[in-house]
């Protein structure tokens, strides 16, 4: 299933990036590739079972003092 999924994601990306290139929207395609690359990297890393830092933990740390204040 995951193979199909990656196939779908990559082919949609390919079509969209090519369209952006044709319109010579370099900035758009750069951010497209960047965001997509970031997402896919995290996805692959998490599938390999590597620990990914959870952004919610970060938020929790920030709000921890507030929480203990109200408790």
């Amino acid at each position: 299933m995951w193979v199909i999924l990656y196939g779908v994601i990559l082919s949609i990306s390919w079509i969209q990036i090519r369209a952006l290139w044709k319109q010579s929207l370099k900035r758009d395609s750069f951010f497209y590739i960047f965001t997509m690359g970031l997402s896919l990297t995290i996805l692959i890393l998490s599938q390999l079972g590597l620990p990914i830092p959870n952004p919610l933990d970060g938020i929790s740390i920030v709000y921890d003092p507030v929480h203990s204040l109200f408790q």
Partner: peptide, 16 residues
């Protein structure tokens, strides 16, 4: 142009 990659990012985020 950012919708699809950011959407994938939300999926990834939702998984973790």
């Amino acid at each position: 142009s950012l919708t699809f990659p950011l959407g994938i990012f939300v999926i990834v985020l939702s998984l973790i």
